[in-house]
């Protein structure tokens, strides 16, 4: 089968490549672009470890063909740190509140949480839990992940208020 030409913006950089149409986005990101932050956990669209942001949507990149993402703007965990290289508030808060143990789910968790807070900047604990219900963590029991996301929301809101 002929390869197809794909073009997309990944973490702010224009990317062009030839890929087999059957290539899943997660394989394209990890193997073609060497972005190994998004993980392959279950490979069946349940666990959310492969979550990336695609045109403002959180998607499971194991359940999307590269052609479907042709022309899209994609952000992975590698693309969310601040421009000066310092950690994004969510990364900072996951560290601060120990929102991880083994860390396998963390890239998906943080990318998902970033989109959740963009849509709902001041979520309740229940809304955070519902909002990350497509991301599984087998270590933490979610307690500290939820804490970290709520703390990030509070920090971002305080920053916004201070700027006004």
């Amino acid at each position: 089968m002929a390869k197809m030409h794909v073009k997309m913006t990944v973490n702010g950089k224009a990317v062009e490549a030839l890929a087999e149409p059957r290539t899943l986005l997660i394989h394209f990101l990890r193997e073609e672009l060497n972005l190994t932050g998004p993980h392959i956990g279950c490979d069946t669209s349940h666990c959310g470890a492969c979550t990336v942001d695609l045109d403002g949507k959180s998607v499971k990149s194991c359940t999307l063909f590269v052609g479907q993402a042709n022309g899209a703007e994609i952000t992975t965990i590698e693309g969310i740190a601040n421009a000066d290289g310092s950690l994004h508030v969510l990364q900072e808060m996951f560290r601060e509140h120990h929102g991880l143990q083994c860390g396998f789910c963390t890239p998906g968790m943080i990318v998902r949480a970033r989109r959740l807070l963009a849509e709902n900047p001041d979520p309740t604990e229940a809304e955070v839990r519902f909002g990350i219900s497509g991301n599984l963590c087998r270590c933490t029991g979610y307690q500290n992940i939820v804490k970290a996301i709520l703390a990030a929301a509070a920090t971002l809101n305080a920053e916004k208020e201070a700027a006004q």
Partner: peptide
């Protein structure tokens, strides 16, 4: 239905 990521697509 499903979860947030699945509902986006």
């Amino acid at each position: 239905i499903a979860d947030p990521q699945v509902r986006y697509l």
